[in-house]
């Protein structure tokens, strides 16, 4: 098991290394385009040449990559062009904001979706199952921007209970977090609930659940001790993988509610060709993706005794 974890971490490091190489080659392999992005397209060739020389861009690619990698590892991502500040100072607060949004959403999604999925899955085809399944399909098929417009229409303009923007301009305010979280929950809840339901239905039909029932165990014990234990493996994996989406994929919601998060930052960086900020955002997004994947893998092994020894 320890060996498996170490192996997984090694794989994580290797992936990051390959991604860093790809990012570097894509964005920094041709120095002239870097110069144009940093000091602007309307500069003269001499100015660009001078800038390249001053910033060490005339050295061989290999040497520049090693230096670049070294700076990245120490958390020095360079200067943002748009924000005129070190990238790190811009990036970390934004990531923190998104983490608050994402984890709040997750804290609602995880228990609710599992509960709904289990209720639906215990008895396939029951009225509860049908209602939950239909509701899940409807909410999941609504795109985020549509539900955002709808919820804002109801709670901001009609009922006027909640603010329509979440920029936190006058300091931290939980009321501004409600709508973005609601949109995320609405979008993701049904998906995870359906996965849990499918897993539960499958487990309830297994021979070992039949064994447990025919041993004379109570229904509650059959469900909690025999079915749930095995049925939760799938939703656990799905939820772990969704952490990745919640941290780096909530661009639409953040843009809609003007929430100052990581997704909005990514969008802004791309639109402004803010090269160092793009590099940093990409690396952080990939790290989040790979790390959650590793977490899901290791968790899956822990939950499944058949995989523990290997």
């Amino acid at each position: 098991m320890v060996l498996a974890v170490l192996k997984r971490l090694g794989l994580l490091a290797a992936t990051m290394l390959v991604v860093s190489l790809v990012v570097f080659l894509l964005l920094e392999a041709t120095p002239s385009s870097v110069a144009i992005k940093v000091i602007g397209p309307y500069t003269t060739a001499e100015q660009q040449q001078l800038w390249l020389e001053q910033n060490g861009y005339l050295r061989p690619v290999g040497e520049r990559y090693v230096e670049w990698l070294g700076r990245f590892l120490t958390g020095d991502f360079g200067e943002s062009i748009r924000f005129k500040a070190p990238v790190a100072e811009v990036l970390w607060p934004r990531l923190w904001n998104t983490a608050i949004l994402g984890l709040t959403a997750l804290a609602v999604i995880a228990p609710c979706s599992i509960l709904l999925g289990v209720i639906a899955g215990i008895r396939e085809g029951s009225p509860a199952d049908r209602s939950i399944s239909v509701a899940s399909i409807v909410t999941t098929s609504l795109p985020e921007f549509a539900s955002a417009v709808f919820l804002a229409g109801v709670f901001v303009f009609w009922l006027a209970w909640l603010p329509g923007t979440s920029s936190m301009a006058e300091g931290w305010d939980w009321r501004q977090l409600v709508l973005p979280v609601a949109v995320l929950v609405l979008y993701d809840l049904g998906y995870v609930a359906r996965m849990t339901r499918a897993s539960m239905v499958e487990v309830m039909a297994t021979a070992y659940v039949r064994t447990a029932v025919l041993k004379g165990l109570s229904r509650a014990r059959v469900i909690t001790h025999h079915a749930l234990r095995n049925a939760l493996i799938t939703p656990f994996t799905v939820l772990t993988l969704h952490i990745n989406w919640l941290l780096s994929g909530v661009i639409v919601v953040e843009a809609f509610f003007a929430y100052k998060g990581f997704g909005a930052l990514l969008l802004e960086a791309s639109l402004n060709q803010d090269i160092y900020l793009i590099e940093a955002c990409t690396m952080v997004a990939v790290l989040v993706a790979v790390a959650t994947q590793a977490l899901a893998d290791i968790g899956y092994r822990l939950l499944n005794p058949r995989l523990r020894g290997t």
Partner: peptide, 8 residues
Amino acid sequence: TSALNPSM
């Protein structure tokens, strides 16, 4: 094989 719970 399938009559026994794999995680107990």
